[in-house]
């Protein structure tokens, strides 16, 4: 199963599917890091709305994805963490301190517009 990327201007939006496996998570890491350079991408929005669980492995992988993309010179925003998933993450002891999280894609795009405009100035 491939992970779909949606292109929106100079950003890519990655909607993660509910039954994403650990292998696919790791695959996503490599794919995105490569894609960002090849296509002049300024920002990546990872949409986790469909995920009903984010465990320590998924959290670590998402953080690694974001760090790799930042090293490539682009910004990452994670959107759509469900309320009950958020509560479970807190109880587990997870944090996403290195990654920007937002409510939805619209908010993330607005943030990326500002961030890239500031960088261009």
């Amino acid at each position: 199963m491939g992970i779909p990327f949606l292109r929106h201007r100079e950003y890519i939006i990655v909607p993660l599917q509910a039954a994403i496996s650990d292998d696919e998570m790791v695959e996503l890491w490599g794919l995105l890091a490569n894609h960002v350079t090849g296509h002049d991408v300024r920002g990546v929005v990872i949409d986790v709305t469909a995920l009903d669980v984010i465990d320590s492995f998924a959290c670590r992988t998402l953080t690694h994805v974001a760090q790799a993309i930042r090293l490539r010179g682009a910004e990452t925003v994670i959107v759509g963490i469900q309320p009950d998933v958020a509560i479970a993450m807190v109880q587990l002891g997870l944090s996403v301190t290195d990654v920007r999280t937002m409510l939805d894609t619209e908010e993330a795009i607005a943030f990326l517009d500002q961030a890239t405009a500031r960088a261009a100035r």
Partner: peptide
């Protein structure tokens, strides 16, 4: 509850890993 299901599912993933 859906909330508790999320906790159970998270715990299960950790145990399986």
């Amino acid at each position: 509850l859906r909330f508790d299901l999320a906790l159970v599912a998270t715990a299960l993933l950790e145990l399986a890993h």
